[in-house]
Nucleic acid binder design. Structure first.
Ligand code: SF4
Ligand code: SF4
Lengths: 137, 137
DNA sequence: ACCTTCAAGACCATTTTTATCTTTTTTAGT
DNA sequence: ACTAAAAAAGATAAAAATGGTCTTGAAGGT
């Protein structure tokens, strides 16, 4: 239930790889795709979207590629996940567009709301910079 | 992202309706479906599964229908949701069968694990009996 | 000019979701 | 025994989402 899609997983892996380079480094799409084991054309779509959203810069032509558009410490995991998967919502009624006629009185609604808030807080509390640091043990 | 399917939503609504009757009451599938606004044939499939799992009893023939097989206070929301949607896992690597070669060293893995634990705890902490009580305000 | 690299959009196979329909089995009541 | 009621089981299927690929075009460097 409620699983991240490949797209979401690839997006996180891709941007973390970018964040592991010195800030400002321009990296080839192909290099990121290979290192993170992501189908290149699929990652291209994801990164095109990231560029539009201002997470990364893209450069065309020889010597082109992608670089972070702002420090990894200023990008949260929630922002990345929501960029590709849409708002975090364990049920329709807690999604932005999700109306349910029962929601005003529904006892289950509040539970989904709590699950949603917990997930949002957890993902908000982690930055790409933290995730990019190599693990210690 | 990570949304409950109709099946999951129907399952919860259906069993709550059953839990609102006095314990042991046998209710027609059609009555539950109508009250909870669920396609009857779809709810039939869900309840067949619930019966197999021992949440409810089913009775065929005239005067048949469904009743809770154990008190609503002993059925948690997590049990109901996992019965229809499978284990709660925000990413493959925290699912029972989900192996990822990176999981041992992956910094993101621990975040998904935390989201998973929080959701599991929240849904574990709510019983169908609580949800079946009419809301107060 | 020419090569490199990303952008954009069309395309497509597979899987999942969301059901419906039909046939069979069980049971209660007469 | 017969009949009607009701769930069980399984086949079928439309629609949507997923997980990509392919082609063409545009921008930039040499
Ligand atoms: S949980 Fe309650 S409010 Fe949310 S969709 Fe279900 S019935 Fe509606
Ligand atoms: S979060 Fe880490 S461990 Fe989990 S699937 Fe992604 S790479 Fe693998």
């Amino acid at each position: 239930m409620m699983e991240l899609t490949r797209k979401g997983e690839y997006a996180v892996r891709g941007i973390i790889h970018l964040a592991r380079q010195p800030y400002g480094t321009v990296v080839l799409l192909g290099e990121i795709a290979e290192a993170a084991e992501i189908p290149q054309t699929f990652l291209a779509k994801i990164f095109q979207n990231f560029a539009k959203l201002g997470f990364i810069n893209s450069y065309r032509g020889t010597g082109g590629g992608f670089s972070l558009a702002r420090p990894a410490a200023e990008i949260t995991l929630r922002q990345v996940v929501e960029a590709v998967e849409g708002p975090i919502a364990p049920n329709r009624c807690v999604a932005p567009a999700g109306e349910c006629v029962r929601s005003a009185t529904c006892t289950v609604h509040t539970v989904w709301r709590q699950v949603q808030l917990q997930a949002q807080e957890t993902l908000d509390g982690v930055t790409i910079e933290e995730l990019a640091r190599e693990e210690s043990p």
